[in-house]
């Protein structure tokens, strides 16, 4: 068996986001031990039924997230959702969903290693993010449950509000994390 590594394991001294706090006003916490499944289906009814039976979650509408227990569903495109779940359940739930959708035009893809997830919090959150993202990310404009695919610091990013007014979850493609950390650190350190 090979050792599984996340990009956080290989980020070196000096490039590290620090012990989570990268500046007085900004706390970055890598989201660990979570798996990601990309759910694509042209038949939303079939996908809806499969999800409800398997994890008891309904498909959220455009720009929204829904969650239940350890499961989070993020809207991505009109025919695509991202399911965040405990890493150890990724294979089994992925296989179960695939089985339930065998006769529909659907695809379940393990995206656990494709994206890097970060939780960013702190008083300076909106100020920092809005220096690299053209969306209005202040709490009243980006309420809990809101999902946006956009660009942050010139990198494609999925942003969503997991609740409250002081946290945003951010998912970026693996490989961009060093750039984003450098940008976050530089932006937050004033």
């Amino acid at each position: 068996m090979l050792e599984h590594r996340t990009p956080f394991d290989s980020i070196r001294e000096g490039e590290d986001p620090g012990s989570a706090t990268i500046a007085r006003e900004l706390i970055v916490t890598p989201v660990r031990d979570k798996g990601l499944l990309l759910l694509q289906s042209a038949c939303l009814q079939a996908l809806q039924t499969a999800l409800e039976r398997e994890i008891g979650l309904r498909l959220p509408p455009a720009q929204q997230a829904s969650w239940h227990g350890p499961y989070v569903l993020l809207w991505q495109t009109p025919a695509q959702w991202l399911l965040q779940l405990p890493a150890r359940e990724c294979d089994s739930i992925g296989a179960a969903l695939s089985d339930r959708l065998a006769s529909a035009l659907a695809a379940i893809t393990d995206f656990s290693d494709a994206l890097v997830a970060l939780e960013v919090g702190g008083a300076g959150l909106a100020d920092v993010f809005m220096s690299g993202c053209s969306l209005d990310l202040r709490a009243d404009a980006f309420p809990p449950g809101r999902v946006a695919r956009t660009s942050l610091a010139d990198v494609p990013a999925i942003l969503w509000n997991p609740g409250g007014s002081d946290r945003i979850h951010c998912l970026i493609e693996r490989g961009f994390e060093t750039h984003l950390f450098a940008w976050l650190k530089g932006t937050a350190t004033r």
Binding site: A62, S134, L135, A148, R149, T150
Partner: peptide, 9 residues
Amino acid sequence: WCGPRDEPE
């Protein structure tokens, strides 16, 4: 689907 966004997107 996503509402108003800036041109570079």
